[in-house]
Lab assay of single mutants.
Amino acid sequence: VTLFVALYDYEARTEDDLSFHKGEKFQILNSSEGDWWEARSLTTGETGYIPSNYAAPV
């Protein structure tokens, strides 16, 4: 399992994006889409796309 942590807060701009807060942890589901990764929040259980430059490996 690849775990990442949010470096900044992010507010979803589309219904496919995932809103999150700094410090929140994610499981990365798909990182082959370039700058946007499909991720599941370990806090909320929700799935959506996150900007890859807002996350770092745990």
Rank of each mutant, 00 (worst) to 15 (best):
P51E: 02
H21W: 08
A55I: 15
E15V: 11
S31Y: 13
H21S: 14
N30P: 05
E11R: 08
H21M: 12
T2V: 13
A56N: 06
S41A: 07
T2H: 12
P57G: 05
T44S: 10
H21Q: 12
L18D: 00
A6N: 00
T47I: 14
D16V: 13
R40Y: 12
A12K: 09
D16Q: 14
S52F: 09
G48A: 03
R40M: 14
D16I: 13
A55S: 06
E38I: 15
I50Q: 00
Q27S: 08
I50W: 00
Y10L: 03
F26H: 00
T43C: 12
E38L: 15
V58H: 08
E11N: 10
W37V: 07
I28H: 00
G45V: 02
A39C: 06
W37D: 01
V1E: 13
K22G: 03
T14S: 14
G48V: 03
S41G: 03
K22S: 06
T43V: 10
L18T: 02
W37E: 01
D9R: 04
G48E: 00
Y54Q: 04
K25T: 12
F20R: 00
T2N: 13
W36D: 03
D17K: 15
L7F: 04
A55N: 02
S52A: 14
F20D: 01
G48Q: 00
N53H: 13
R40H: 09
L42F: 07
E15T: 12
Y10Q: 01
S41V: 07
E11K: 11
S41E: 03
I28D: 00
V1I: 13
Y8T: 06
A55V: 15
L3I: 15
H21L: 12
L29D: 04
L3G: 03
Y54V: 05
F20E: 02
E15K: 13
E11P: 04
L18P: 01
S41T: 04
A39Y: 02
Y49L: 15
A12F: 02
G23N: 05
A39S: 03
G23T: 01
L3D: 05
D17S: 14
S31P: 12
E24V: 03
R40L: 14
E24L: 02
Q27W: 15
N30D: 13
Q27K: 07
V5P: 00
S19W: 02
S32C: 12
S32R: 11
L29P: 05
L7P: 02
T43H: 10
Y10N: 02
D9T: 07
L29F: 08
T44N: 06
E11C: 12
V1Y: 14
V5S: 04
V1F: 14
V5T: 06
A12R: 09
L3A: 07
T44Q: 01
S52K: 14
E15R: 10
L42E: 09
W36P: 04
H21E: 09
S41C: 06
P57H: 06
S31D: 12
E11L: 10
G34W: 08
Y8H: 08
W37G: 00
F26A: 00
L18N: 00
Y49A: 05
E24R: 00
G34N: 13
V58M: 12
E46R: 14
S32K: 11
G23I: 02
R40C: 08
T44K: 03
S52G: 08
Y8S: 06
D16C: 15
T43Y: 09
E38M: 15
L3K: 04
Y49T: 07
D9I: 02
F4L: 07
N53R: 11
V1M: 13
N53L: 10
G34D: 13
N53F: 12
E33Q: 14
I50N: 01
V58S: 08
H21N: 10
T14V: 07
D17A: 15
L3E: 08
N30C: 11
L3W: 11
I28F: 03
Y10V: 01
R40G: 02
A55W: 05
E46P: 01
L42A: 05
A6K: 00
F20A: 01
Q27V: 15
Y54D: 02
L42M: 12
L7G: 01
A12D: 01
D35R: 07
V58K: 03
W36T: 06
P51D: 05
G45K: 04
L18C: 03
L18F: 10
S19N: 06
E11T: 13
R40S: 06
G34H: 11
S31V: 12
D17F: 15
E15I: 10
T2W: 13
Y10H: 05
F20C: 04
L42Y: 07
A6M: 06
G34S: 13
G45C: 09
T44V: 00
A56Y: 09
V1P: 13
T47N: 05
F4I: 07
R40F: 11
L18M: 14
E38R: 09
N53W: 15
E24K: 01
R40T: 14
D17M: 14
V1G: 14
K25F: 15
V5G: 01
V1H: 13
D16A: 14
D9L: 03
D35C: 11
